[in-house]
Measured scan of single mutants.
Amino acid sequence: PQECLLLEPGLNEIMANSLDYNERLWAWESWRSEVGKQLRPLYEEYVVLKNEMARANHYEDYGDYWRGDYEVNGVDGYDYSRGQLIEDVEHTFEEIKPLYEHLHAYVRAKLMNAYPSYISPIGCLPAHLLGDMWGRFWTNLYSLTVPFGQKPNIDVTDAMVDQAWDAQRIFKEAEKFFVSVGLPNMTQGFWENSMLTDPGNVQKAVCHPTAWDLGKGDFRILMCTKVTMDDFLTAHHEMGHIQYDMAYAAQPFLLRNGANEGFHEAVGEIMSLSAATPKHLKSIGLLSPDFQEDNETEINFLLKQALTIVGTLPFTYMLEKWRWMVFKGEIPKDQWMKKWWEMKREIVGVVEPVPHDETYCDPASLFHVSNDYSFIRYYTRTLYQFQFQEALCQAAKHEGPLHKCDISNSTEAGQKLFNMLRLGKSEPWTLALENVVGAKNMNVRPLLNYFEPLFTWLKDQNKNSFVGWSTDWSPYADQSIKVRISLKSALGDKAYEWNDNEMYLFRSSVAY
């Protein structure tokens, strides 16, 4: 590609939709070469300064400071330590791993069909083939991996386009969902002041979706909304933040926050679980009234959910574990990228498509890292959202599997949720969690119950496949010279610098 592309739109479109291996590689590498390399010296300084700040406030390091958001002291029976968070994340991840490994094996087999000769049947997945710029969410792999393609499509993007949905309609439908469970409408100022579409040439905007509580009843969302099912669900997520903000607005200023950061992320995700169900999509006209649910549509639905929800958990866990180790000084600065990709291979089963030396800073190419967000919130929120969903479905008197529950129109479920939201940070999160779900610790069981039918199906699908991955295989081993030459021509001086062995191999191949 010759034109100058922004991340959004532009590069993200390539990473969402392109099936051209080399075009995807160009976009993936260009973003890291342009952005990651510029941020490397800044990120090194950032780590030093943030650690100084944390230690001045009596924390061991900046990662310890972040984990302090979960700490509860002096509340008998509800205490929770920063170290306990690490333990809980690690042991819940071990419980999730078998499901993830089977999802990984299934996706690898489907990617082998889409990119023959580029995928190893026992290796890691190349990082640039996973549906977005970071491989964070695998949602866009659904069209390549759908188990029963002859069934009606449960990705309702086409239906939204056919019905001329726009950003306003998407957010109005999200608002209807919250109102149906007894939560309030958005304010008039929300509709007047939010930026729900890309302003285009009028001004440059950071398009990463964010929710804003500017105080004095001024709530806004910034999002360059596209007419897709993914953005339909994202709208519910962002509006969930606003509902939380509005619910605790009466609290004293210092207590106007989520019980912990994971709670804030979980609220909209609960609504997304219901909004994505075929039952709900039928009720708002995005699935045909004669759409029939059966075992095959159930597996299609659960796989689509797993690509988004299960596929991202190792990504989140590994990223934050790397940062915690960096802040603690356990990874020397001259080994940041080496350790990043070692951990990516070992924990996530994902491999870099071309080698990256220590001039890169791949983590900082992600919005949340370069903008100083702690990231473990996206792991804890996933466990909380299924715990909350299970409890709210019980309040809504849902009968049947958890993945079929739609809590819309249940004011009982809405009241149970609101009673927790309005507390803000005035009560320990362990107590707030217990008030809703009857337990005071994160628990992976509801998530595993939700995906149980899919897990059973995946194990059957993978019975003749290798489950797990070898960390030795690299996608650039066989194609390295071709890849390096093409990237050198595209990126010039910003391309990865060849070492002596690679230059010798190149000259030998040319001479041959």
Rank of each mutant, 00 (worst) to 15 (best):
R136C: 02
R136V: 05
R136D: 02
R136H: 07
R136I: 06
R136Q: 05
F137Q: 03
F137H: 07
F137N: 02
F137R: 04
F137E: 05
F137W: 04
F137M: 06
T139V: 02
T139R: 08
T139W: 04
T139A: 07
T139Q: 05
T139L: 04
N140Y: 04
N140W: 02
N140G: 03
N140C: 02
N153K: 08
N153I: 05
N153Y: 06
N153E: 07
T187K: 15
T187D: 01
T187Y: 07
T187F: 09
T187H: 04
T187Q: 03
T187G: 10
Q188W: 11
Q188S: 07
Q188N: 08
Q188P: 00
G189T: 14
G189P: 15
G189V: 13
E192I: 07
E192P: 09
E192C: 08
E192Q: 03
E192V: 09
E192H: 10
E192T: 08
E192W: 12
E192L: 08
E192Y: 12
N193S: 11
N193P: 12
N193K: 15
N193W: 00
N193F: 00
V206R: 07
V206E: 10
V206C: 09
V206N: 05
V206Q: 08
V206Y: 07
V206F: 07
H208R: 08
H208K: 10
H208I: 02
H208S: 08
H208T: 02
H208L: 07
H208C: 11
P209R: 11
P209S: 07
P209C: 07
P209F: 12
T210Y: 08
T210I: 10
T210V: 10
W212D: 14
W212V: 11
W212C: 13
W212E: 14
W212L: 12
D213G: 09
D213I: 13
D213H: 13
D213L: 12
L214R: 14
L214A: 11
L214N: 13
G215E: 12
G215V: 11
G215M: 00
G215D: 11
G215T: 01
G215R: 01
G215K: 00
K216P: 15
K216I: 15
K216N: 15
K216F: 15
K216R: 14
G217P: 15
G217M: 15
G217I: 14
G217L: 15
D218V: 15
D218L: 15
D218F: 14
D218T: 15
D218R: 15
D218P: 12
F219Q: 12
F219Y: 11
F219M: 14
F219R: 14
F219D: 13
F219C: 14
R220K: 14
R220E: 03
R220A: 14
R220G: 12
M229C: 08
M229Q: 01
M229V: 08
M229A: 05
D230Q: 03
D230N: 10
L233R: 07
L233Q: 11
L233C: 07
T234D: 02
T234N: 04
T234Y: 07
H237M: 05
H237I: 06
H237N: 08
H237C: 01
H237V: 06
H241R: 05
H241L: 04
H241Y: 10
H241T: 00
H241C: 01
H241A: 01
H241K: 00
D245F: 04
D245E: 10
D245Q: 07
D245P: 12
D245L: 12
D245H: 09
D245A: 02
M246E: 09
A249E: 11
A250F: 05
A250L: 06
A250C: 01
A250H: 03
A250G: 05
Q251W: 14
P252I: 11
P252W: 10
P252E: 01
P252G: 07
F253T: 12
F253S: 12
F253Y: 13
F253W: 13
F253R: 12
F253P: 11
F253V: 14
F253G: 13
R256H: 11
R256V: 09
R256N: 04
R256K: 04
R256T: 06
R256D: 10
R256E: 08
N257D: 10
N257S: 07
N257I: 06
N257W: 07
N257A: 03
E261C: 05
E261L: 07
E261V: 10
E261D: 07
E261K: 10
E261P: 07
E261M: 01
H264L: 09
H264V: 10
E265V: 08
E265G: 08
E265L: 06
E265P: 06
E269L: 08
E269M: 06
E269K: 10
E269Y: 06
S272F: 06
S272L: 08
S272W: 10
S272M: 07
S272P: 09
S272V: 05
F301P: 02
F301T: 04
F301L: 09
F301Y: 11
K304W: 07
K304L: 05
Q305C: 03
Q305W: 02
T308M: 05
T308L: 04
T308V: 04
I309R: 01
I309Q: 04
I309G: 01
I309N: 06
I309E: 03
I309T: 07
F367L: 09
F367K: 07
F367D: 08
F367A: 09
F367V: 08
F367T: 07
H368F: 05
H368R: 05
D372H: 01
D372L: 01
D372V: 01
D372I: 01
Y373E: 05
Y373T: 09
Y373H: 10
Y373N: 12
Y373W: 04
Y373P: 03
Y373V: 05
S374F: 04
S374K: 03
S374W: 04
S374I: 06
S374G: 05
S374V: 06
F375Y: 10
F375C: 05
F375M: 07
F375Q: 04
F375A: 05
F375T: 03
R377V: 03
R377K: 02
R377E: 05
R377P: 02
R377C: 02
R377A: 04
R377F: 05
Y378V: 05
Y378W: 07
Y378S: 07
Y378Q: 09
R381L: 05
R381Q: 02
R381G: 00
R381W: 08
R381F: 03
